[in-house]
């Protein structure tokens, strides 16, 4: 299995006004083709930075990032990104926000409009196609941005805390929808989150990070059977994995021990 995305001894230092900030240090991992990898860590540990390196929107100060074996030198376009904020275009209606992808890429608009409608229906936004973003709730907006990341059927999907703004119920539902979608399409996914349960439930492997500078604490294999369901969270193995990650965080001082 060839790695879709691989990072080797990657470091990233930002030149902030107050001086250099070491965001990442010695990052080594790869995402195989069709693999679902969760990146788990507290805020400020460099998760978003990792995502911007993987998409060629920023470049590492040391080490290498490669996509299908080729080093990344430009913004990667064969990719779907869900940013931490929804980044919807306020002047476009919901459908047109999704359709910006095929429009910019010069794809068949008729064909993709049906696809966009199907995707919006999948995330429960039927009837909202002609609304402006400001008429939507935070959760609905993020769902639109997920549709926008999926419409051109990219082989690699990068998601930065996509469900962070959702209420707990919608969140669980979206997690399951994403899982089913992944089972169906088997895209490579890099899923950034700070939620331990979400990270484990979705992934084949969970990359656990520690902050300042962002380093890899451990890459945890998630040996839970597919398809995963909400009930999976009640299984013994799941609870063990959650406890294992929790202890990792405690050991690195991310979580306090009581």
């Amino acid at each position: 299995m060839s790695a879709a995305l691989s990072l080797s001894s990657v470091g990233k230092i930002y030149q902030a006004k107050s001086g250099p900030v070491q965001a990442l240090d010695g990052i080594d991992f790869s995402i195989g083709e069709g693999e679902f990898l969760s990146i788990l860590g507290p805020s400020g540990c460099g998760k978003s930075t990792l995502l911007s390196l993987a998409s060629g929107l920023e470049f590492p100060t040391s080490g290498n990032v490669a996509l299908s074996g080729k080093p990344i030198t430009h913004a990667v376009t064969d990719i779907g990104i869900v940013f931490q904020t929804d980044v919807l275009l306020e002047w476009r209606r919901v459908l047109d926000n999704v359709m910006i992808q095929p429009q910019i890429r010069g794809l068949d608009m008729k064909l993709y409009e049906q696809k966009a409608r199907d995707l919006l229906a999948l995330v429960g936004l039927t009837g909202f196609e002609d609304k402006y973003p400001h008429e939507l709730s935070g959760g609905m907006r993020q769902r639109v941005s997920i549709c926008r990341a999926l419409i051109h059927d990219p082989p690699l999907l990068l998601m930065d805390e996509p469900f962070g703004a959702l209420d707990a119920l919608t969140r669980e539902q979206m997690v399951m929808e994403l899982h089913l979608l992944w089972l169906r399409t088997r895209k490579s996914v890099m899923f950034v989150t700070h939620d331990i349960q979400e990270a484990i439930l979705l992934a084949q492997r969970v990359l656990v990070m520690t902050p300042r500078p962002g380093r890899i604490a451990e890459i945890v294999e998630v040996d839970l059977p597919f398809p995963r369901k909400p009930e999976t969270m009640e299984t013994r193995r799941f609870v063990e994995l959650v406890a294992h990650v929790r202890h990792l965080f405690e050991r690195h001082g991310v979580l306090k021990k009581y």
């Binding site: 998409s55 913004a75 990667v76 376009t77 990719i79 940013f83 992808q101």
Partner: peptide, 13 residues
């Protein structure tokens, strides 16, 4: 914002 230009670049505008 930065994210909008990132979105644009990821689509290869």
């Amino acid at each position: 914002p930065k994210e909008v230009s990132w979105l644009a670049r990821s689509m290869g505008t």
